[in-house]
Simulated scan of single mutants.
Amino acid sequence: MAAEPERVFSRRQLLQHTRGLDRASTERAIDVHIMNLRKKIEADPRRPVRLLTVFGVGYKLTGQPS
């Protein structure tokens, strides 16, 4: 995500890049990882400005907030 800011990644794409074809992992596991990342990088994880959800598609990392 950091190499391609502003690009939207689906849960499936993120799962494949992190876990490969591990059948034990689910796409919902990505949501948990995103939540944990937001706790670390966002000033207010409930109102993210850097790691955004694109409804119905996935997630994207934006540039530094202004």
Rank of each mutant, 00 (worst) to 15 (best):
S10P: 01
Q13H: 11
I34F: 12
A43T: 13
K40G: 04
E42S: 07
R19C: 12
K39Q: 09
Y59D: 04
Y59V: 04
R47M: 12
V49I: 11
K40D: 06
P45H: 11
R19N: 03
H17V: 05
H17G: 04
A24Y: 02
M1Q: 13
T18G: 06
G63S: 10
G63F: 11
R23L: 14
D44A: 10
L61W: 11
L37C: 14
Q64I: 15
A24L: 12
D31P: 11
R28T: 14
T62W: 00
R11P: 03
H33W: 08
E27K: 01
V57E: 15
L51K: 05
S66D: 13
L37I: 03
V54L: 03
R7G: 02
R12Q: 08
I30P: 11
I41N: 02
R38Y: 00
A3Y: 14
L14E: 09
G58K: 02
M1Y: 09
Q64H: 14
G63M: 07
Q16E: 13
A2K: 10
D44R: 13
R38I: 00
Q13T: 06
M1A: 14
P5Q: 01
L14D: 06
P45C: 05
H33E: 03
K60R: 12
R23P: 06
L15Q: 08
L14M: 15
R46N: 14
M1W: 08
G58A: 06
G58D: 00
V54T: 15
G20V: 12
M35H: 12
I30Y: 03
V54D: 12
V54K: 15
A2I: 04
F55Q: 15
V54R: 15
R19K: 09
L14Q: 03
E6V: 03
G56K: 06
Q13L: 08
I30F: 03
L14W: 02
T18M: 11
E42W: 03
Q16V: 06
L61A: 05
S66Y: 05
A43Q: 07
D44F: 06
A29I: 07
F55M: 12
G63K: 10
T53Q: 14
S25D: 01
L21H: 12
R28W: 07
A3H: 13
S66T: 12
S25I: 04
R38M: 00
A29T: 10
R19P: 01
T62A: 11
R46H: 11
G56A: 02
R46W: 03
K60G: 03
Q13I: 05
A29Y: 02
L52E: 13
E6F: 15
S10L: 05
S10N: 00
S10R: 09
H33Q: 09
E4L: 12
R12F: 08
F9T: 02
V32I: 12
E42M: 08
D22K: 11
I41G: 04
I30R: 04
K39H: 10
E27I: 05
K60F: 07
A24R: 13
P65L: 10
I34A: 11
V32M: 07
V54Y: 09
